[in-house]
Nucleic acid binder design. Structure first.
Lengths: 209, 209
DNA sequence: TTTGCTTTGTAACCTTTGTTACAAAATGGT
DNA sequence: ACCATTTTGTAACAAAGGTTACAAAGCAAA
């Protein structure tokens, strides 16, 4: 397995340990990486690709928590992992994903031994916090049209492409609204020459930024 | 300082260390415990009382993050503290508060040394996560009237009293809406005999539950 | 008691978002 | 080419929430 990218984040000795004790896994687009109720025994560190993390509430509403990409890991997993709890989240591969799964017995050891690991974990918690806070702010204070624009920009940044592949239905789902509303707002954006709509595809024009 | 309650959470040796290295602090209702932009060098562990934690976004909107009560601590503080960053949150004493402030140099040491501390920190992160998720779910999927009812029940649980002391304006603020809207909804609840309204006071009737 | 400030009540109106219903277009398999 | 399925467009309407404006009530200090 290729852990070159990790060298920039962790000290060499830790990378060697990760190689030794971790399990390399790969997933194809759409694959289910983690699901509700499954026991978590490993903590994932993403090497390549993007992972979408979702959560369902008591009423069956599913909500997008955040996206994880290279060198990030699922903070929610950590404490679940240590306490051998069941997953409260679902993780899906957005594109082709490679990750290295760290067995839970190593988590605590490394926390003591390696400053880089400790910082990595703590920074992860913090970043995830900030993401959730932004999410709250977005829902609480911004109207749907702004949120939609932010959503599209996010996708653009994440995929590195100005062509976003998604159906209106999917977008509606992730913004917790209905398809008709999204179609309406997208059409407004198209009319103001900021995007062009195709089937399953949205092209962001220069004037979009 | 009286750290009896901590005995139930931490091993005796750690409690002794907390006594030795921590700083005992007390605050009166309304006191500012932590504010935006101040450097965080200590991590608070609440001994008594309730702390309200807020955050402000780029547009100056302030949002309620969560309440902390006995034996809880501010997860947001942790990583800030370790990296000696400025606070992104404001913390206000809801009632009379006692806390013990742990100097940041001890945080990492204890993480290695004491399993109870490690679990405490990790569980804290997790609980805060869950709170934020609930908050997101509430805003995203529930209408204001439901959220208002949930808010009142929360206050009731937190204070242990069926009489909630708060102006409509304050409630509106914490639910990120306008005073008129809250007055309207409260009046509906009063009309359906679930609450009685007074000035700066709301009495929850038995039928409210 | 008078004055000024805060809190609450209420009406009227506007904007945003959600819902239902139906049609048209695109796509993929046979 | 034909059919079933998915995706998108649009209209018409309903509901929730936000805004403005003003009045009345409560409270506190002078």
């Amino acid at each position: 397995m290729n852990l070159d990218n990790l060298q920039h984040v962790f000290e060499p000795k830790l990378v060697t340990e990760m190689q030794q004790f971790g399990t390399w896994q790969s997933f194809k687009e759409g694959d289910l990486i983690m699901d509700y109720g499954k026991y978590i025994r490993m903590m994932p560190v993403i090497l390549k690709g993007t992972v979408k993390v979702l959560r369902m509430d008591e009423n069956g509403n599913e909500i997008l928590l955040y996206y994880l990409s290279s060198n990030e890991s699922c903070s929610m997993a950590y404490s679940c992992c240590v306490e051998a709890k069941k997953s409260e989240v679902r993780a899906i591969a957005e594109d082709d994903v490679e990750l290295i799964a760290i067995p839970h017995v190593k988590l605590d050891d490394w926390l003591c031994q390696y400053t880089s690991w400790r910082n990595y974990i703590m920074r992860g918690f913090n970043e995830r916090f900030i993401e959730l806070l932004k999410s709250i702010e977005s829902i609480a204070f911004h109207k749907l049209d702004d949120r939609l624009v932010a959503y599209l920009k996010d996708k653009q940044r994440l995929t590195g492409s100005s062509v976003i592949k998604a159906s209106h239905y999917l977008i509606a789902d992730e913004l917790a609204t209905s398809r008709v509303v999204i179609s309406r707002l997208l059409k407004q954006l198209e009319n103001s020459k900021k995007i062009i709509l195709y089937r399953n595809e949205i092209k962001l024009l220069p004037s979009f930024v």
